[in-house]
Design a protein around this nucleic acid. Structure first.
Lengths: 201, 201, 201, 201
DNA sequence: GATGAATGAGGATTCATTCAT
DNA sequence: GATGAATGAATCCTCATTCAT
């Protein structure tokens, strides 16, 4: 007896998630070239060919992985940042929240930190598309916030510099080789914002 | 008549340099896996086999490249940093000098930024060896300087945080995807040091 | 519908046999180094990559070939030798049977005669493992028999000498460069055993 | 000042001997394919290119090695075998002398045992030439002797069988994997000749 | 939807041989 | 005569992708 469309959709969703999660895991250990399609299949507990049923090719798996994790990440961030505190406070929140998320989903954090860097080399054709994704989901929201701070005078450096500074500090905190300690986080935020807004928060 | 030992030494040195420079160039465009030995040879204007005459294998080429570039880099930095200015001033100099070098030798800068992160995946066996190289040539000199600042009270955050902060800011400036503009550099240094020493320099 | 596990098992067995048989054939003509993986694949009518699906590498193919042929050989011999005739008669049977098998499966015979001698050079790491295989499947059974003959007094020379003598005569008969003629076989056996047991059988 | 023709000849002879001896040594450890020209040169203490000054190519080195060692071997044997003892006694002498030589020049013995076997595969074009060398230097002298024994009635089996038997026993004794012990040699000869001439000598 | 057998293009590496000096 | 730098053809092996079932 054939499955209902509804059942098919559910299976589809489940399988794709299985594959993407497996990819995340294998990627963490082996990097892009070390992530063999067979290893993904094995980790996902599926047949090797099935991946090609749900994804066009290896590239498609990884681009999908970016999409999937970015959108989840964005949601998680939005919960925190759409408040009406002062800009500096919200930036501080973003830093803290991002660190917390990086700890909780360290594979995702690792994936973005390393993979985004390699896209120009791995998928030269799709750089724009991926940059666009990051822009929408990560950089723009933060930039908008900083812009607001610059306009209100809270932030004392130009927008571009402020943005660069913020992300430097952010990536410095979640660097997967030396993730910052929970206990140092407050001081980190304070030190970082000092540069931006001229006082320790 | 056979060549003299001296002539042979000169040839060898020249060839190794040619190969390493070619590697740097190809790596910039293609990344580690995209860097085919044949492409290195072509770029260096040499036969493919010659690379294996001078280097054990591809891994050896890259490890040698780390060594070679790191030692050069260190020399260039030392010229600037071994002065007797205040710590903050010297840190500022390091930032500026590193940025200048990153602009001048952008392939080297790109190489270190990307390759060092992949070593764990590419050469798991040699991570320690490579970390050691970075430690000696990069981390330690800067850490020593910051330590000094902490001891004299110039730097107002703990050593570890200070170090992390400094490198975050450093990497934020030379990030190969968006290298900082020459004209923003002073303000960048100032912003950065504000966080560390509590005043804009 | 995917194939049943049973079907897959059958395919695998068949393919491995195909590959090993092809190897045997190519080896006969080209020797170990001349046996290119591509030639094996071509001879087996399979894609080159498939060999690596079933065997780890070239070495694995050859070690498997030893195992496979030795076990078959042993079976064939056992049929003949587990009788209760006098030792000399059984040794004679072994000689004859081995010659018959060598004629029928001359590629296998050639393979063992040549390959076993090269293992020390080809796979220095696995010499022990292979020697063990020969010991169990070939030498021990014969040695046991000769031992019996020595104990009953049928054989008039010490065990070790007897063993060496028997194998010398055996290899002398099946030497692939000049395989002994069917018609000379009886006299050969007789001549050989004369040395061992002191009379022509 | 140019060398005299005489000096040149001496150098030439010396170099060729150096190369052939080095080849023998390396071959013992690595086999034909493992014997790299560079390793020969290194072992001989000469430059890599010089080998090609004295020999056409790798094949030529090995063919020359056969010639060189065979002729030396023949001389050594002739001293012993050109006596007027009975055939059986002379065959026994050959066995013993060959074993003694095999012990003394084990690299040469190893070389012939293994290399002669592989010629069909390594140099298919020159098989005839090499067989001819063995025929003249080894097989024929022995065959002639056995022939004599058959004619005088000393040897009780047909020529071809006798020859095969003799060489089987010979190779059984000097097998490089298990060279016969000095102390077993007399009994070995006796056992062997028993098969041929019907009595222990 | 699902499986895993099958393919072959692609890339690292080796090594006999050549050649400028 | 002598050296060792240089070459590139040849070969092993990997792995994304396809396909019969």
């Amino acid at each position: 007896m054939p499955r209902s469309p509804e059942q098919n959709r559910a299976i589809r969703e489940k399988r794709m998630r299985q594959i993407l999660e497996a990819t995340l895991h294998v990627y963490r250990e082996r990097g892009y070239h070390g992530t063999e399609m067979g290893a993904i299949a094995r980790r996902a507990g599926l047949g090797r060919g099935l991946i090609y049923y749900y994804f066009k090719d290896k590239q498609d798996v990884f681009i999908s992985l970016i999409r999937w994790t970015l959108s989840g990440w964005k949601e998680l961030l939005e919960e925190v940042t759409e408040t009406d505190q002062p800009v500096a406070a919200r930036l501080g929140e973003i830093l803290k929240k991002t660190c917390a998320l990086s700890l909780e989903y360290s594979d995702v954090s690792y994936f973005h930190q390393t993979f985004s860097r390699d896209i120009g080399v791995l998928f030269p054709d799709r750089v724009d598309e991926v940059v666009q994704l990051y822009e929408e989901n990560l950089w723009r929201p933060v930039r908008t916030l900083i812009q607001e701070g610059v306009e209100t005078g809270e932030i004392q450096v130009p927008l571009e510099l402020g943005e660069r500074f913020f992300f430097s500090v952010l990536f410095g905190a979640i660097n997967y080789e030396r993730m910052i300690e929970e206990s140092d986080l407050d001081q980190w935020v304070s030190t970082a914002l000092y540069g931006l807004v001229g006082r320790r928060e």
